[in-house]
Design a protein around this nucleic acid. Structure first.
Lengths: 226, 226
DNA sequence: ACCTGAACACCGTTCAAGT
DNA sequence: ACCTGAACACCGTTCAAGT
C-alpha cells in the first residue's frame, strides 16, 4: 500500500493505480465469476507484474472489499437519486432492499462478499441507509436498532443465497430458470413423510418471482413494527 | 465415491469410510477453523493417502456439505427432543432459530457453509422444520411460504455474519468481546455527518447480547404475521 | 516511489500403480 | 474394491533487484 497521492507519468497514460486495479477486478469478477479474480489474471489484464498490484492493495481481501464497496456505494447513491422526495420511510426501505437485490442479481459476487464480510465498510453503508429510514418510521427508540439489524441480516441472507445460486448455475452453465426447475424436481423427489412442507413448496418454485418474494419479506418485517 | 456397502477388514480396525472422513473433517474444522480443512491435513490425520479420500467423497464441496449436514441434523433432532409437547408454534420456531444460533456459535464454519450453500440438504432440513411450524401458526396459506423463507433468510444472514466475525476474531487472535470493542471504536470514529446512525449504534454494541438480538429479530418477523 | 518477475509455500484433484 | 503417493495445474504472497 502507499499514500493516496497517485502520481502519473507526466502527460502519459495513467499509470497503475488503486482505482484502475479495482475497476479491472470488477470487470474480471463480472465476466468470469468469483473464481475469475486472480492476481495472475489481473496482472495480465493490467499489463503489469503480479507483485506490482501489492503496492496499491494490501491483499486479496482488501481488493475484494474495495470492489464490493465501489458497487454498493453506487447502488445506494442511485436509490437516493431515484426516490421521490415525498416517499415514506417504508417506501425508501423497500427501495434500498430492492436496489441491493438488483445489484446482487447483476453482480452475484457482491452477494457472496457481503455475506462473508463483517462489519466493515460496504455493510456499514447499508446499515446507515436502513437505520435512518427505520428511525424516521417513528417507532420506539430501542426497537430501531433491532429492526434495522433484522432487515440487514435478512438482506444479507438473501444476498448470500442468490450469490450461491448464481455460482452453481454458472458452474453448470444453466440459466436461472433451468436451475430452479432442477431444484424443484429435486425437492419433488424427497421423501413424502420426512419432507412434506418442502415438497409442497416445490410446486410453487417454478413460477415464483424471487424479487417479489424478497419484497414481501421486507414488508413482513416492517409489518411487525406496528 | 463408491457404493454404500462399507466393508471393513474382518475383525480389524474400521477401515477408511465416508463417516470417518466426515468426523475427521469436523474435528479439523472445529479446532483449526475454515482454513484448517485440507486434504493433506485430513489424510495425515486419517493416516492415509490424499487420494484415498476421493474414493469416499466426491470433492471438497461434497465433504464440507456432508460435515455441515451432520451438525445441522443433530441440532434439529435436539430441538425436537427438547421441545415440550405443548409448546406453541411460535415457541418452536424460536427454539429452532436459537438452536441454530448456538450451533453456529460453537461451529462458525457451519454458518459460513450454510450462507454459501444453496438449496441443498442441510438447508432443506431447516426449511422443513420451520415450514411445519409456520404452517401450524394458522396464517393464510399463501403467507406460509413467504414467512418461512423470510425466517430462513434471516437466520442464514445472521449465520453468515457470525461466521465472518468468528473468522476475523480467530485471525486476530481476539476473543469476541475484544473484537466487538474494536468494531465499536471503529464505528465511533466514523464521520459524524455521514454516519450518524452507525455512530449511535456503536455505543450499544459493547454491552449488547447477540443472542437476545437474534431472538428479537425472529419475534419481529413473527409479529408481522398478525 | 513504483514496478518486475522469479521463487516460496501452499492448494484441490487426478491417475497409474499397487493390493 | 479400495488404497498409495507422486504429479499436475493451479493459487496468494514475498522480495531482491531494477528504474
Amino acid at each position: 500500500m502507499r499514500s493516496n497521492t497517485t502520481r502519473r507519468t507526466q502527460r502519459g497514460e495513467p499509470s497503475l493505480s488503486r482505482e484502475r486495479i479495482i475497476d479491472a477486478a470488477i470487470a474480471l469478477l463480472d465476466t468470469e465469476g468469483e473464481g475469475g479474480l486472480t492476481f495472475r489474471a489481473l496482472s495480465e489484464r493490467l499489463a503489469t507484474g503480479a507483485g506490482a498490484i501489492y503496492w496499491h492493495v494490501a491483499n486479496k481481501d482488501d481488493l475484494l472489499n474495495a470492489a464490493c464497496d465501489a458497487i454498493v456505494t453506487a447502488t445506494l447513491a442511485g436509490v437516493d437519486a431515484d426516490s421521490p422526495s415525498g416517499a415514506t420511510p417504508q417506501a425508501r426501505i423497500r427501495a434500498i432492499g430492492l436496489a441491493m437485490f438488483d445489484t446482487i442479481d447483476a453482480h452475484p459476487w457482491v452477494g457472496a462478499e457481503l455475506a462473508r464480510a463483517s462489519w466493515k465498510m460496504p455493510m456499514v453503508r447499508i446499515l446507515e441507509s436502513l437505520g435512518r429510514q427505520v428511525g424516521a418510521l417513528g417507532v420506539a427508540a430501542p426497537v430501531v436498532g433491532v429492526a434495522t439489524t433484522t432487515l440487514l441480516s435478512y438482506i444479507l441472507g438473501v444476498a448470500g443465497q442468490n450469490a450461491a445460486n448464481a455460482q452453481i448455475a454458472r458452474a453448470q452453465q444453466l440459466v436461472r430458470e433451468t436451475f430452479l426447475a432442477s431444484v424443484a424436481s429435486d425437492w419433488a423427489a424427497l421423501d413424502a413423510d420426512q419432507f412434506p412442507f418442502t415438497r409442497s413448496l416445490a410446486e410453487h418454485l417454478r413460477d415464483h418471482d424471487d424479487r417479489n418474494d424478497f419484497a414481501a419479506g421486507i414488508d413482513l418485517i416492517l409489518q411487525g413494527l406496528r
